[in-house]
């Protein structure tokens, strides 16, 4: 039986490939990207378990088991890094999505098309400013000696604030800057989703006497729920990945702020940069990936339990 089956199956696979050759071709860049940057380097994880040296290469270097991971625990930094990374991302995800939905709804309520386009454009703009520039702008606004904010405070007779040595202020600053950069961009998706809502629903609500607020509350928001869940799930996948460029350019090497600003990626970057330490940084990277993987699985599991249709897989 199997003998008879296999040529037919092979043929049909070939047939499938031929039939969807255009679609496959369109997928090819993405497939190549993931193979080259995500799958091909996977064997390099082995570095995390070795005492790596150039001559022996990745697989020839002596195996040391979990010794490289000891550092992570010994330094006591692991908990702080994990906590900061997750809390920042939760703030970004929750506040970000709420703001994006609010902005999208407001945009939708603007009747003057010209003004709507202008507002969208202005809110979109910060997304294109490089993190390096954002860092420079922030320094010039916030620094103690010559910063614009402190100049204003001094002019009005107040005492200048030492922002760059007050760790407690930074979660607020970082979250604000992040939202300033990303909200305009993120609201586009929600705006598009709103555009896709059946206009008949609004008309029916209007006929039933629903006010503008009631239409938003009972038509728009429920219709956005699937989009919201998908977007949150996608962002949960990256919860162990911070916005490196932003954090690095805002905080840099200022250890006074690390307690509230250091995330896994900035920490790894500093370590590789000043340490030439491939092994420990690979170990941190592996920890980050495994932890992130576990989080995605858990989040997806929870969603599937609540509503199977909304789960990613």
């Amino acid at each position: 039986m199997a003998h008879e089956d296999s040529p037919r199956r092979r043929k049909s696979l070939l047939r499938k490939v031929v039939d969807s050759r255009i679609l496959l071709l369109m997928c090819a860049p993405a497939i190549v990207f993931f193979v080259v940057f995500n799958y091909a380097p996977l064997p390099g994880i082995w570095i995390a378990f070795t005492n790596f040296n150039y001559r022996d290469g990745i697989f020839g270097s002596p195996f040391v088991g979990f010794k490289n991971f000891e550092f992570l625990f010994k330094s006591g930094q692991l908990w702080m890094l994990t906590r900061n990374t997750i809390l920042y991302n939760l703030a970004f995800i929750i506040l970000g999505n709420i703001l994006q939905i609010a902005i999208a709804i407001m945009l939708n309520e603007i009747r003057l098309k010209f003004f709507r386009k202008i507002s969208q454009g202005v809110m979109f703009l910060p997304f294109f400013i490089s993190a390096v520039l954002v860092g420079v702008i922030a320094f010039n606004l916030l620094n103690y000696d010559t910063g614009a904010l402190n100049a204003l405070i001094k002019q009005t007779g107040g005492d200048p604030i030492k922002i760059y040595s007050t760790a407690g202020l930074w979660p607020i600053i970082i979250i604000m800057v992040h939202l300033w950069q990303s909200t305009g961009y993120g609201s586009i998706v929600y705006f598009a989703a709103i555009m896709g809502i059946d206009k008949g629903l609004y008309e029916a609500a209007a006929i039933d006497g629903a006010s503008a607020w009631q239409r938003i509350r009972h038509v728009t928001l429920p219709s956005l729920k699937p989009t919201f869940i998908i977007l949150v799930l996608f962002s949960l996948g990256g919860i162990m990945h911070g916005n490196f460029g932003l954090f690095w350019n805002l905080v840099g090497n200022n250890a006074a702020l690390f307690q509230t600003t250091d995330i896994i990626e900035t920490s790894v970057y500093r370590m590789v940069l000043s340490q030439n330490n491939f092994t420990t940084s690979t170990a941190v990277g592996l920890y980050q990936s495994l932890f992130g993987f576990a989080l995605v699985m858990i989040a997806n599991g929870i969603v599937r339990r609540i509503n199977k249709d909304y789960a990613l897989f």
């Binding site: 005492n51 490289n68 040595s165 250890a255 370590m271 092994t279 420990t280």
Partner: peptide
């Protein structure tokens, strides 16, 4: 090679404290 992980961990501690001590913070 025997002490590299320790050196890396020490670097983490030093890079936290020394710049702040240096600048009297």
């Amino acid at each position: 090679s025997a002490i590299e992980p320790t050196l890396a961990a020490m670097a983490g501690v030093l890079s936290e404290y020394i710049p702040q001590l240096q600048y009297g913070k």
